[in-house]
Simulated assay, not measured.
Amino acid sequence: MKTITTIFVLCLLAVAAVSAQDSRGQIIGRVNDASGAAVPAAEVKVTNAATGVTLSSTTNEQGNYEALYLQPGIYTVRATATGFKSYARENLEVRVSDRLNVDISLELGAVTETVNVTATTPLLESTNANLGDVVDERRITELPLSGGNAITLMRFTTGLNDYAAPNHPSLAAGMDAVSNVGVNGTRGGNVEFSVNGVPNMASTFAAYSPPADMVQEFKVQTSTYDASVGHVGGGNVNLVLKSGTNKFHGSLYEFHTNNSLQATDIFQRQFYYDPASGPQTPEKFKTVSPQTILNRFGGTIGGPVWVPKVYNGKSRTFWIYGYEGFRRPGVERGNYFYTVPTAAQRSGDFSALLGANQCTNATATVGVCGGAFTTPLMVTDNTGRSLQA
């Protein structure tokens, strides 16, 4: 029984691993000499520039190596082998779910000598056929975000159709609106969202979007040929959170707007200047443009895990914390509609709803309505036709 339980748990873990798209990247390649021959037993080290975390790999008999589970960021690749000069390549960017091929050519010489590779063309991911775009930290930081939601930048991806209500920044927290997109003509609700490779779905829409200052970058795939992201008919949006680094860092922010900072729209102006809706008074304007206040505030902080005289997690263990609050006191439009009947309406007099219209009943002549109605109530339109209300 214990063996069966163990096998069952392992199967569940395997299914979970297959069903999630890993947001971490990989660097693979081959180490060879100047003649193109493979260099076995070479040591390759991949170091994250921000955290100092280093992953080591040793080449096999064919000279191949691989560095797996790399958090998105900037890396330095170093290679050493007996009888060859050391190799170093800096500023190598690994993005969300990247699988980069970096071949290394070693020159004969002493290990103490180093060949630095600095001027190279940007790497193209040639190990799969996925199409899409990566929205990096710079764009998240410098471009305006609707409602402060980083995911809204996915709308700039080629082939993506936005079905959400336009120009409504206060809906940024409503993920059913923000994530209502389609890819290459598919219907809304056919895009899978994930955070750090973990599914982030509530029905057919994204369940949650972290504060923008917590987002490292995200990848929008519009053609998902990889089976790990083939769960839906549309695309895939894989978002990666920031990590703590070897230095303590953080941010604080506050975004504020109110009705005094916003111009009235065409419908508000039409109602305010319409004589039929009453004279133009300050009280009327308050119903047209009522109190509307939006406050979005928050902050982040992170760094290495450090307990004085107990543990120093520099280049090993990190933490980060983020918070965002949203306050929206006020009303959306004003009290245009009343659902509680007036005293006259409760006694049967609904003439106030007709305004200046003419009305009559079956036995009386046409006149201005007033008092309780008898049955049937007749109303005349602008052409003089008599209609039963």
Score class of each variant (00 low, 15 high):
141 T>N: 15
141 T>Y: 11
141 T>I: 10
142 E>Q: 15
142 E>Y: 15
142 E>K: 11
142 E>R: 14
143 L>T: 09
143 L>V: 05
145 L>S: 11
146 S>K: 14
148 G>L: 11
148 G>E: 02
148 G>W: 05
149 N>V: 13
149 N>A: 15
150 A>Q: 01
151 I>D: 01
152 T>V: 14
152 T>N: 13
153 L>S: 11
153 L>T: 08
154 M>T: 10
155 R>K: 15
156 F>R: 13
157 T>C: 08
157 T>G: 12
157 T>W: 13
157 T>I: 14
158 T>D: 12
158 T>Y: 12
159 G>S: 12
159 G>T: 10
159 G>M: 11
160 L>D: 03
160 L>F: 07
162 D>N: 15
162 D>W: 14
164 A>Y: 13
164 A>C: 05
165 A>Y: 12
165 A>R: 15
165 A>W: 05
166 P>V: 04
166 P>F: 01
166 P>L: 06
167 N>W: 13
167 N>C: 09
168 H>L: 14
168 H>R: 08
169 P>N: 08
170 S>Y: 11
170 S>E: 12
171 L>I: 04
171 L>C: 08
172 A>H: 07
172 A>E: 09
172 A>K: 09
173 A>R: 08
173 A>G: 10
173 A>Y: 10
175 M>L: 15
176 D>F: 06
177 A>Q: 15
177 A>H: 10
177 A>E: 14
177 A>D: 15
177 A>V: 08
177 A>P: 00
178 V>C: 02
178 V>R: 12
179 S>D: 14
180 N>Y: 07
181 V>I: 15
182 G>D: 11
183 V>K: 06
183 V>Q: 03
183 V>L: 11
183 V>R: 08
183 V>P: 13
184 N>D: 05
184 N>W: 12
185 G>R: 13
185 G>E: 05
187 R>C: 06
188 G>R: 14
188 G>Y: 02
189 G>F: 08
189 G>N: 09
190 N>L: 06
191 V>H: 03
192 E>K: 07
192 E>T: 09
194 S>F: 03
194 S>M: 01
195 V>Q: 06
195 V>E: 06
195 V>F: 03
196 N>P: 10
196 N>M: 04
196 N>R: 13
197 G>E: 07
197 G>C: 05
198 V>A: 06
198 V>H: 00
198 V>Y: 08
199 P>W: 12
200 N>M: 00
201 M>C: 01
201 M>I: 02
201 M>D: 11
202 A>L: 11
202 A>S: 14
204 T>I: 02
205 F>R: 00
205 F>K: 03
205 F>I: 00
206 A>N: 03
207 A>S: 08
208 Y>S: 04
208 Y>M: 01
208 Y>Q: 00
209 S>C: 04
209 S>E: 02
209 S>Y: 04
210 P>K: 00
210 P>C: 01
210 P>M: 01
210 P>W: 01
211 P>G: 02
211 P>C: 06
212 A>K: 01
212 A>T: 02
212 A>R: 04
213 D>W: 05
213 D>H: 02
213 D>G: 02
214 M>F: 02
216 Q>K: 06
216 Q>I: 06
217 E>M: 04
217 E>R: 00
218 F>K: 01
219 K>A: 00
219 K>C: 03
222 T>E: 04
223 S>Y: 07
223 S>E: 03
225 Y>N: 05
